[in-house]
Amino acid sequence: MSTQATLLTQFTALDTATVSDALDACGLPPGQGGLPPVWGRPKVAGFAVTVELEPLSGEHGGAHILTGAIAEAGPDDVIVVANGGRTDVSSWGGIVSAGAAVRSVRGVITDGACRDVGQARELGFPVFARAQVPVTARGRLRQKSTGEPIRLGDVTVSPGDVVLADEGGVVVVPRERATEVLQAAQRLADREAAIEADVRAGVPLPHAMRDARLAGTEEM
């Protein structure tokens, strides 16, 4: 297994809450909510392939949005779409889900609405979005950029950043600090597992969750 694939496997073993805490500990923006999976309970971790959309007002929109980015994406990638949180028009649909699934893309996170959820479900393709709406992007949106830094809510996503999404939210980990954040998250996960084990064994909650233990300043 490649180093990149191993990194993603290790992130996939975690949840977004734990990675968000690790981002906090590393002085980085934490995770965010409001981007739930639109079907099922998938978890995806991958390297960001970024696309930014913008309103189309009269002029021709050019090539169909998203198609070029999907054609270049692969099995370690997650498509991340910036559409300013708009929920009145779809920024992801069934045909692009099919195209991404064929490329073995891991999933999509769109800061906007999606449609054709049943098609994505049948494909087993994870979609995380602000909302669902049947309104087509055709004649309403055009692609502003691909492969450039974008905004996902309050966080900047650069191409190649690690993104992790599950039913709890979405986290963005700068690629150059991915190993640091991963190690911090793994330590936090071990600490929380030990605390939960104590609670289940009958240790009083105030003792199990004592400040020094939560801060990581005492031996487990």
Rank of each mutant, 00 (worst) to 15 (best):
G94M: 11
A165M: 00
P75C: 13
V127C: 08
G124R: 03
Q10L: 12
G160D: 12
D161E: 09
L7E: 05
V127A: 07
A101K: 14
V203M: 10
V49N: 11
A13P: 00
A137L: 00
D190K: 12
P204S: 09
P174I: 01
V96R: 06
T110M: 05
A137R: 05
E52H: 10
P30C: 03
A13D: 09
A194M: 10
E176R: 12
Q119K: 12
I65L: 13
R175I: 09
C114F: 08
G112I: 00
A101T: 06
V78Q: 01
G62V: 03
Q183Y: 04
L141I: 11
G112A: 14
V181S: 07
T87N: 04
I65G: 06
G168A: 13
T87Q: 13
V96M: 12
A189I: 04
A197M: 08
A215I: 10
D15M: 00
T9A: 15
A71L: 13
P149H: 04
R151S: 11
E122V: 15
A208T: 02
G33S: 08
V155W: 02
T136E: 09
M220V: 14
T3R: 13
L152H: 05
P206F: 05
G112C: 04
T87G: 11
P159G: 02
V170I: 03
R151T: 09
D76H: 08
P30Y: 01
S2I: 11
P126A: 05
E52A: 15
L152F: 10
G68V: 11
R210Y: 02
T217P: 12
L123V: 02
R187W: 06
R103S: 06
A25G: 13
A131E: 09
G99M: 15
V108Q: 07
P206G: 04
K43D: 00
Q132A: 10
